[in-house]
Structures are given as C-alpha cells and as structure tokens.
C-alpha cells in the first residue's frame, strides 16, 4: 500500500495586494511507497519547493487530496486539522530545508537534540545521539557547545541536516539539503539518505545537483513551464 497517494493536488496563491491569483501547479497526482525516493525536478522558480511545502502544510494546498497512511490511521494532509498535522510533524513527517534557523544563545548540540526532546526522549538519551549526528556530518566537536548564529553557512547546514534527520521519520521532504555542504558532508548526507531509504523511509526531494542522488531515485516528477492546462496559461511571471 502506498504511504502517500496524491490526487489532483493544486496550489494557487492569492495575493491580495495584486488582486491576483498565481497558479504554481495544477492537478498533480502521484503515489509514494515506503522506501521509495521521488525526485522533483524542473527549472528554478517553477514550484518544486512549493510542492514540498504543500505536503508539509506550510502552504495550504488549494485543491486535491494527499492521503497519508499514518501509524494512527489514514488522513488527508490537505484537509487534516492543524493539530493532526502538528502531531505528524512531531512523529512521522520531517522536512529538511536549505537553511538553519538558529536561535540566539542556543547551542548546536541543543538545536540538534530538540526534535528528540519534543518527541519525549529524555535529555540523557538525546544528547549522545545528537553528538553522534553532529560527528557523522563532520561538525568539529569544539563547536558542539557553541552558538550556530556565529557559524559559517557550511557549518550551519551541517547542524541543520543533523537536526532534521535525528528523529525517526516515515516520510522525509528534502528541499535542496546539499546546497551549502562541502563534498565530504554531502557524501555523508547521501550515505545517510541511502540508509534511511533501505530502512523504509519514503523520500521526496529537490536537489540542486540531481546527479549526486540519481542512484537512489525510484521516480521523478518533472515540472515544466507550460505544463499547466491552457486555461491557466495567462502569462508567465518570475517568482
């Protein structure tokens, strides 16, 4: 049984200031099995991240269904109650972004341990796992207790990926997670994704250099300009 069944998913933004509605994608359908990796490809600004954000409900889908088979039962991510989405985010669905959102005076180690603590893991168990994650992504131990607000972009991204991947998830949404990583950190991330995939985690991802993960990919959603139905094709705008 698919973990996720997306049917006719559409996203339009209504921008009041412009008195206009902007369509990003329309009637998109696909299924995702446990352990499958779907690559989302297409030109910049075409709406790849928008799809991921709709599935995570950071954006509200405009129409369609996204039936997700959670451990607690089947649910439509498009219409699910906010508290149900919040629960899924704590327990089952993860999102890996391109950027860390560091908070002042919160150390790298604390940031990485946080998703475990939020899920109810005790501090004494969470801390060694957070250290192991930071180590596997190559952040120098001297920086573990330091505040990432002062880190370089590459160091911040190591913390970000460690934080995003530390808690067990069944569905991972990846939004260019390799963007600011150097080659060694990128290699450990890809190794980690391979492990997760073989453990049965389903992945949907946008990658700036798709070739580096091509060997993991089971399917591809390719966004093309002009792919929207003719009645929506009024005029193209830059994002």
């Amino acid at each position: 049984m698919p973990l996720l069944t997306v049917e006719n998913l559409s996203k339009r933004f209504y921008v009041d200031q412009l008195q206009r509605e902007i369509a990003v994608f329309d009637r998109l359908s696909f299924t995702l099995e446990p352990g499958q990796f779907i690559l989302v490809s297409g030109a910049n600004g075409i709406g790849k991240s928008t799809l991921l954000r709709c599935l995570y409900r950071t954006y509200r889908p405009s129409a369609g269904r996204a039936i997700y088979e959670s451990r607690r039962g089947s649910i439509d991510l498009v219409r699910a109650a906010d508290v149900d989405i919040a629960l899924l985010r704590r327990e089952e669905i993860g999102f890996v972004t391109q950027f860390l959102r560091p908070r002042p005076r919160v150390s790298a180690l604390e940031l990485v341990a946080e998703p475990l603590l939020a899920g109810g893991t005790a501090l004494r168990d969470a801390e060694p796992r957070a250290k192991a994650m930071l180590e596997s992504f190559g952040l120098k131990p001297a920086l573990w207790g330091a505040y990432p607000t002062m880190f370089s972009g590459g160091e911040q991204q190591r913390v970000n990926v460690a934080r995003a991947l530390i808690a067990p998830r069944r569905l991972l949404l990846l939004d260019e997670p390799t963007a600011s990583l150097d080659s060694s950190a990128r290699a450990s991330l890809i190794a980690r994704l391979r492990e997760l995939k073989s453990d049965g985690v389903a992945l949907v991802g946008v990658f700036h250099y798709p070739d580096e993960i091509r060997h993991l990919v089971d399917g591809e959603i390719h966004f093309e300009s002009g792919a929207l139905p003719p009645e929506l094709e009024a005029q193209n705008v830059d994002q």
Binding site: R20, E21, D76, D84, L88, A234, V237
Partner: peptide, 21 residues
C-alpha cells in the same frame, strides 16, 4: 508560475482532529 484570474480560491476548511484523540 502563471497568473490567472483575479478571484480568490475558495477558503479551505479543515476536518475535525482525527489522529489526536
């Protein structure tokens, strides 16, 4: 990305909580 009509989407309404019991 494509600009279409000037009419807002119908507002979304959520289902009642189901996973949280």
């Amino acid at each position: 990305m494509t600009v279409i009509s000037s009419r807002p989407s119908s507002p979304n309404s959520n289902d009642a909580p189901r996973l949280i019991t």
